[in-house]
Write a protein that binds this DNA or RNA. Structure first.
Length: 319
DNA sequence: TCTTGTTTAGAGTACT
DNA sequence: AGTACTCTAAACAAGA
């Protein structure tokens, strides 16, 4: 069996669905929204597999963007010339991949008719609505001394300080953590991992603060093809990895909490390809639900309407 | 013309 | 087994 590492997975299909790849790209962007071409670029940069047969997978990807309610289209402003719209993640789509598999969602995200009108037809209005009524979040309050408006200095300079949905509480009063936020991707045990100082960088990123290179380099070493904290965030430049980080990272120390227990910190395909060998020290995680995203569960829209509380996450404890 | 976006359809696969 | 989800293909329209 080929061992993870050098070029093992370079040309193999990544263990992610197009939906997860797209969400990754969007979530990784500074503004939490990307034009189609940038989504393509992100995927091709990170996954050599997708540098071929572009017509095929790009068609599928476009299909996914249109078909799935978890993606919303945000029109360009008149002063933002360019082709196509921006694509963002629906603020309520929550933990689509909470079962730990990035190949298959637990449940398709579907918006209600009325909301669909607001989000799909006029997503920017939806964004404005949410942003207006939910200007803060638990993440925000956790660092209340920071000026929330001091977001990422709009690296592209083409948009207003659109912070994406990552900081919007929306229907999750406990603090919305997007499934593709690094917190959810690499682990749920905040307390344990916080001890290593790791998710702090993501939180900082969420809040729009520059991240010290020494911190972001840790992140990049764990999830290099995602590059959550890339050069645009002031972190170290992220090489286009030829490996799939979840199976090749050497982050043993970071995956273990203080009591030595191994954390379910990697996205695991339901049916790993033979070459997707488990990382030493992560045995037992490659099969079955990993629950790596959060202990919360995706709620039906009807549940939301019935006011059954936070459907996704308990309040985030940062202390 | 090329890119983007929408829609329909069918096959394959995982989940319940 | 039935259902749900993903992937692929294709046709078509609209806009840059």
């Amino acid at each position: 069996m080929p061992r993870p590492g050098k070029n093992s997975y370079s040309d193999q299909k990544p263990p992610y669905s197009y939906i997860s790849l797209t969400a990754m790209a969007i979530q990784n962007s500074a503004e939490k929204m990307l034009p189609l071409s940038d989504i393509y670029k992100f995927i091709m940069d990170r996954f050599p597999y997708y540098r071929e047969n572009t017509q095929r997978w790009q068609n599928s990807l476009r299909h996914n963007l249109s078909f799935n309610d978890c993606f919303i289209k945000i029109p360009r402003r008149p002063d933002q010339p360019g082709k196509g719209s921006f694509w963002a993640l629906h603020p309520d789509c929550g933990d689509m991949f909470e079962n730990g598999s990035f190949l298959r969602r637990r449940k398709r995200f579907k918006v209600l008719r009325a909301e669909h009108m607001a989000c799909k037809s006029s997503p920017m209005m939806h964004y404005l609505h949410h942003h207006h009524h939910h200007p803060g979040s638990k993440l925000g309050t956790a660092s209340a001394h920071h000026d929330h408006s001091a977001g990422p200095a709009s690296t592209v300079g083409r948009l207003p300080p659109f912070q994406g949905y990552g900081g919007i509480t929306c229907a999750q009063p406990g603090g919305f953590k997007h499934p593709f936020a690094i917190e959810n991707i690499i682990g749920r045990d905040y307390k344990g991992v916080m001890a290593s100082g790791f998710p702090l960088t993501s939180v900082m990123h969420h809040l729009g603060y520059p991240v010290p290179p020494q911190l972001s380099s840790v992140v990049n070493s764990m999830w290099p093809h995602v590059g959550m904290l890339s050069e645009s965030m002031g972190g170290v430049p992220m090489p286009a990895s030829s490996e799939y980080a979840p199976f090749s990272v050497t982050a043993k120390g970071l995956y273990h909490s203080a009591n030595g227990q191994t954390l379910p910190a990697v996205p695991v395909p339901i049916k790993p390809t033979p070459s997707l060998a488990p990382v030493p020290g992560l045995t037992g995680l490659q099969s079955g639900p990993a629950h790596l995203c959060s202990p919360g569960s995706v709620m039906e829209k009807s549940d939301l309407l019935e006011g059954k509380g936070n459907p996704l996450h308990p309040p985030l404890l940062l202390s």
